[in-house]
Design a protein around this nucleic acid. Structure first.
Length: 275
DNA sequence: CCCCATCGTTGCGCCTGCAT
DNA sequence: ATGCAGGCGCAACGATGGGG
């Protein structure tokens, strides 16, 4: 069965299939078929996979590779057993998974995954934009591995902070993730362009952040150090904006006030929230 | 009342031009 | 030479309001 179609699983599931399917499984050892749904045309098509018991590990390998695939690609992959079979790959068949199963985005764009990467690499502005979300992804991975972090998910909403994080049993904290600029200042300190893309027409100060827009700011140093490392700070440690009352300055330096260990910063942020 | 076009706002940071 | 303010390319989304 397709795990994604039955996620979440509220009850025990019973499925039925034809004797013919069972015969095919015994004979072939491994087959995939489309589940027939009489009078249920509106439901999504589900691709079932059957194998003999010695193929259990193949089934796990297959479901790993097939997670989230649409039914067509799921069936296509299921029929290419050489990609997850216990048997050695046939001589000469030097294919990779991506040759058979396109990432959904690559399929939508009608490009090979490598071609999508070429497009990104070839468009300066696009690459720049992607780097922002990649930094966010690395931050999520970094925090997820950090002791004490019990929850860590992207927020993915316009106008909101980037990441939701919970430290131990504390409140849900919002994290703003920003890449530093490529060029450091004259003292070698990384610079952080800390403002929104544009201000609203009515209020020029709306371009700047204020202290309570998020609980923690994370600066990604990759543009300077070429390593996906982060520095953390509480917004109330940041300098005030010179002109806009209650806003934070937009030209920041990642200096000694920024911590490389997130733990103390998150603990302080949680305390600030609770008080 | 529904459909739509339009406007305003936002996400990525980087870049230019002016002030010092 | 350096710092800072503010504009920029591209594209998506939500609110708004006019037309039928």
């Amino acid at each position: 069965m397709d795990p994604e179609i039955h996620n979440p699983t509220k009850f025990f599931i019973r499925i039925e299939f034809k004797d013919k399917n069972a015969d095919d499984i015994k004979r072939e050892g491994w087959i995939a078929w489309e589940r027939s749904r009489i009078n249920r045309q509106d439901d999504p098509v589900e691709v079932l996979v059957g194998g003999t018991k010695d193929r259990l590990l193949d089934l796990i390998r297959f479901e790993r590779a097939a997670q989230g695939l649409d039914p067509g690609n799921r069936q296509l992959l299921a029929q290419k057993a050489e990609f997850f079979s216990r048997l050695p790959t046939a001589p000469g068949a030097n294919l990779s998974l991506t040759d058979v199963v396109q990432h959904p985005l690559a399929a939508e764009l009608r490009l090979a995954p490598e071609e999508v990467l070429d497009v990104i690499a070839g468009a300066q502005r696009l690459k720049m934009a992607v780097r922002g979300w990649v930094a966010e992804r690395h931050l999520k991975d970094t925090l997820a591995r950090t002791a004490g972090i019990t929850y860590c998910q992207p927020i993915n909403k316009e106008g909101a902070a980037d990441l939701h994080v919970r430290f131990e049993e504390g409140p849900l904290l919002t994290i703003e993730c920003k890449n530093v600029l490529r060029e450091t200042d004259s003292k070698g300190l990384p610079r952080l362009d800390f403002q929104r893309t544009r201000a609203s027409k009515a209020d020029p100060c709306s371009r700047y952040y204020s202290q309570d827009d998020f609980d923690v700011v994370a600066a990604c140093l990759h543009a300077v150090t070429e390593s996906w490392e982060f520095r953390y700070i509480l917004p109330n440690y940041l300098p005030q904006h010179g002109k806009c009352e209650g806003k934070l300055a937009s030209n920041l330096r990642v200096d000694h006030n920024w911590q490389s260990d997130p733990t103390a910063v998150f603990r302080a942020a949680a305390n600030a929230r609770n008080s």
